[in-house]
Design a protein around this nucleic acid. Sequence first.
DNA 1: CCATGATGTGACCAGGTGGTCATACTATTC
DNA 2: GAATAGTATGACCACCTGGTCACATCATGG
Lengths: 233, 233
Amino acid sequence: MDIPPALTRNTFSNLPSEKQEKIVAAAVREFARQGYRKASMNTIVREAGIAKGSLYQYFRNKEVLFCFIFERFTLLVKKSVAEQGRALEAGTDAGSDFFVQVRNVLLAGIAFIDLYPEYFQIYLKVLFEQDVPRREELLSQVRLFSREYFGPLGQLGQKSGAIRRDVPLDVVIFVLDATLDRFLQSYAQSYPDCGMGLAKTGRNELLDRVNMILRVLREGLTGSGLHAINHDV
Amino acid sequence: MDIPPALTRNTFSNLPSEKQEKIVAAAVREFARQGYRKASMNTIVREAGIAKGSLYQYFRNKEVLFCFIFERFTLLVKKSVAEQGRALEAGTDAGSDFFVQVRNVLLAGIAFIDLYPEYFQIYLKVLFEQDVPRREELLSQVRLFSREYFGPLGQLGQKSGAIRRDVPLDVVIFVLDATLDRFLQSYAQSYPDCGMGLAKTGRNELLDRVNMILRVLREGLTGSGLHAINHDV
DNA sequence: CCATGATGTGACCAGGTGGTCATACTATTC
DNA sequence: GAATAGTATGACCACCTGGTCACATCATGG
């Protein structure tokens, strides 16, 4: 994504170009607050304490700057899931229960938000904005949940009998994706007021919520398995 | 909300001010496509085939125009739920099963989108935009699902035993809201690719999906009630 | 047919946008 | 110290935004 210059000189100081980092830091803040379109290059420049011309020496234009940052985001995501994968291997429950895995994905998401709240905010903004330059391309590189992740998982679940087989995989994934996605959104911001106030609660209550949501996904909203009759709603 | 003028003259023709309607129609299109911020008054004026000054004679500014349209939307919503309420009274299942009611809400949402897709699009845009002028105030007037609607319903469900009591009402509402909301989003647009292609499918398949999603919400993702052990995920 | 007041019009405004470029500066080399 | 190349700067550009206003047009009442 554009060759950030000034990396050929190496005057011993500023190896990874401290100026570029200042720009990126300011840009991340601005994009997280405003989304792509509303973010102002002037503001970024001002907040970075830098001249406009300098910015455009490092990043050809707004789109390039944004893509650079978003690619950082996808890198951080990949790093995170890799770490989480290793953590799982270390534990005993590699490839264990379907819902344990789902829970782990959700917890990984929470951990990511805790670590990089601004980057996650940018991701959300892209998700909701319509005209980010290379939106589809960028999003396809992350896709935290969704088909690619839950697809195989759900398939295995259905095969092993952990997941009911009388409901198409599509629907399974849809419900999972909708719930988890919304949960993370609620966690990351105080989303359209339905957030249950997640962001404020302590660690324990949060885990409680996670467990209860998973229990509902698992067993449904009706208590224990005394349904079976009247399957057509 | 600003007194749209030209309603005092009444030259027999254009009773509800045909010009105003032209403006509103163009504005609805534009806001539905672009959301509040990105929508351009110039475009609206152009598409309405009208001079800029004229627009500003009917609506003091962009905010007023938008609020006028959004209030139309809330009116349409209220009309729709009222009609749906009457339809329910007519049928036999007034105040019946919790999930039947949830299903009805969802179907009402689908019907609304079919009737007024552009207005629903505007609603979605407001939901996802951050800096719409009187966002909170406007949204609070609709709130299709969410606490106010599902709160009492869920409470009754828990009391009657239709809904499990070992999960807080908050969580019940959260899962319901997340799933239904996302479903309507998927229906209204081809939402971030997880849409199961709802918009394209026929009526029957759509109802099928609805039923299956409700079944999952009801009974959970694991087949029939053979869980009970290992409640802590 | 004119006078009056409401409506319609588009050139115009200030302000903000992303982006440019001649210039100034600074570090390196000879 | 002079020459050279890399970097920093901010005034400036064209463009677009929401909004205004002096003027033209029109329908009406006398």
